[in-house]
Simulated scan of single mutants.
Amino acid sequence: MQRDRNQIIQAENSLLASYAVRQDETGARVYPEEEHPYRIPLQRDRDRVVHSSAFKRLQYKTQVFVYSVGENYRNRLTHTLEVAGISRTMATALGLNSLLAETIALAHDLGHTPFGHAGQDMLSDLMKDFGGFEHNKQSLRIVTILETRYPSFPGLNLCEETIKGMMKHGAEYSGSNLGQKRKEEGPTLEAQCADVADEIAYTSHDIDDGLEMGYLKLGELKDLSLWSDAVRKIKEEYPDLSEKVFIRSVIRELTNGMVSNMIRTIESRIHDWKISTREDLNLHYQEGKRIATYEPEYGEKVRELKSFLYKTLYRHPSVVVTSDRGRDIIESLFFHFRKQPESIPETYRQRIGSEGLERCVCDFVAGMTDRYAEEIAHSIGFKTQIH
C-alpha cells in the first residue's frame, strides 16, 4: 500500500524522542514550494544536496592527500559519506531525526576549497579585506545562492532547520535572520551529532590513510591510550590477523569506541539534566553546557590522539610541501582572475556588480576541484605538478 507524505511523516514522527526535530517542524523554505505527494521535506533536502554540482566535485577535493598520490585515500567526498553514516547512526540510536542529521552532514563540506585546509587558509588571507572566507559560510552560499539547478529559485532552497544546522557554533552570520535564530535557539541535537561525527570520522580515517601512505608508523601509535586500548581488544579477540586486517580492525574499533562513548554521554546528560524538549536543550546551551561531548577521561584520550595527528601527520614534511604548493596555486588563480575577470564564467561574473569582484573570484576558485585548479594554473604558466 502506497503511503502519502502525511502518513510517512506520522510514521517517522512516531520514532522520535520529544527533544528531536519533528518531520513536520523543519521550517519553511525561503521560496515557497508545493509539497511533494510522497516525499517529506528532509528527503528532498538530502536529495538536493546529493544531486548538487558542489557535492559531486567533492570527489576531487583533498582531505589530507591530494588526488594525484593514489586512489586508495580519502577525498572530501568519501569523508563526507563517512560523516553522514556516523551522524545517522548516532541520531537513530538517540531517537533523533536521522534524516536531518544526515542531510547536515552531507552538506557540511560543500564549501571546502581545493587542497584542503591549506586552500581555505589562503583564501581566508586573500579575502581578509573583502568580507573574509570560511568554508562553512561558503557551504551556506552554495545552498542559498550559487547552485543553479532549479528554475524558480537560486541555490537549493533547503528547509530552515537544515540551513540552521549548517551554521557552526561561534561563527558570525551577520545580516542573516536565520543566523540570529540559530544564536538564540542554539543548535539542535541533530546538528551537534553531525558536528561531532565530522571529528570522529577524520580522526579515525586519517590514521588509516596516514599508515597506508607511510607517514605514520605503528610504533608511533602504541603509546597513545585510545589506540592501545583498541589494539588490546582486537588482539584478544583475533590474535592471528594479517597486518592489514589488524590495522583496519583497530581503526574500526576506534571509531566504534568514539561513537559509543559519545552516545552514552549524550544519553546520560539527557537523563541527568532532565531534558524533555528542545527548549530544555537550548537552556543548557545558553548556560554554556554542551551535551555532545565525551566522558571527561575518554575526551582526554581523544585529545591526545588528535594532538598526535596534528604534529605527526598534518605537519609531516611531505604534507606541508603539498599544502604549500596548493596555497601557491590558489593565490596564483585568485590574482589572475582578479586581473582578468572576463575569464570568469558568466554565472559568477554576473554578480560582480552586486557582490564585488573579489567575492566572485573567491566563489569561482573555491568551487574548483584540485585537478581543475591545477589545470587552470598550468594554462596560465604556473608549474603545478604536486608529488
Rank of each mutant, 00 (worst) to 15 (best):
242 S>H: 01
208 D>V: 11
220 E>N: 04
255 T>S: 14
257 G>V: 00
230 A>H: 13
257 G>K: 01
199 E>S: 13
202 Y>K: 01
221 L>F: 07
187 P>G: 12
197 A>T: 05
248 R>N: 10
191 A>P: 10
182 R>P: 11
253 E>N: 00
253 E>T: 00
237 E>R: 03
250 V>H: 07
232 R>V: 15
208 D>F: 11
238 Y>N: 09
227 W>R: 05
183 K>A: 15
189 L>M: 13
198 D>H: 12
226 L>P: 04
228 S>K: 15
195 D>N: 02
248 R>I: 03
238 Y>F: 13
233 K>F: 04
187 P>S: 14
255 T>K: 14
215 Y>V: 11
244 K>H: 08
258 M>N: 04
186 G>I: 07
251 I>H: 13
181 K>A: 09
186 G>M: 07
245 V>Q: 07
231 V>Q: 14
189 L>K: 07
181 K>H: 08
223 D>S: 13
224 L>I: 06
247 I>Q: 03
246 F>N: 00
211 L>K: 06
224 L>W: 04
220 E>F: 02
207 I>K: 02
192 Q>F: 10
189 L>P: 06
199 E>R: 11
181 K>T: 08
247 I>G: 00
207 I>D: 01
225 S>V: 14
259 V>P: 05
185 E>G: 11
228 S>C: 15
192 Q>G: 10
250 V>T: 11
218 L>D: 02
216 L>E: 11
226 L>K: 02
185 E>T: 12
244 K>S: 09
247 I>A: 01
220 E>V: 01
251 I>A: 13
185 E>H: 09
257 G>T: 04
209 D>S: 10
237 E>D: 02
209 D>H: 10
242 S>A: 03
252 R>Y: 10
243 E>R: 13
254 L>A: 05
186 G>C: 10
215 Y>L: 13
234 I>T: 05
233 K>P: 01
192 Q>S: 14
195 D>L: 02
207 I>N: 01
229 D>L: 11
188 T>C: 06
218 L>F: 02
223 D>K: 12
259 V>W: 01
259 V>M: 05
232 R>I: 15
250 V>Y: 06
244 K>Y: 09
251 I>V: 15
191 A>Y: 07
231 V>Y: 09
250 V>N: 07
255 T>C: 12
185 E>Q: 12
251 I>N: 11
256 N>V: 01
257 G>H: 03
238 Y>P: 04
192 Q>H: 12
248 R>K: 12
258 M>R: 04
185 E>Y: 10
209 D>E: 13
181 K>V: 08
220 E>T: 03
220 E>M: 04
229 D>Q: 14
243 E>A: 09
230 A>L: 09
184 E>A: 11
246 F>W: 00
202 Y>S: 04
209 D>L: 08
198 D>Y: 06
220 E>K: 02
239 P>W: 06
205 H>D: 02
226 L>E: 00
190 E>A: 15
207 I>V: 09
258 M>C: 05
244 K>I: 07
207 I>T: 03
207 I>S: 04
193 C>L: 15
212 E>R: 15
252 R>G: 07
192 Q>W: 09
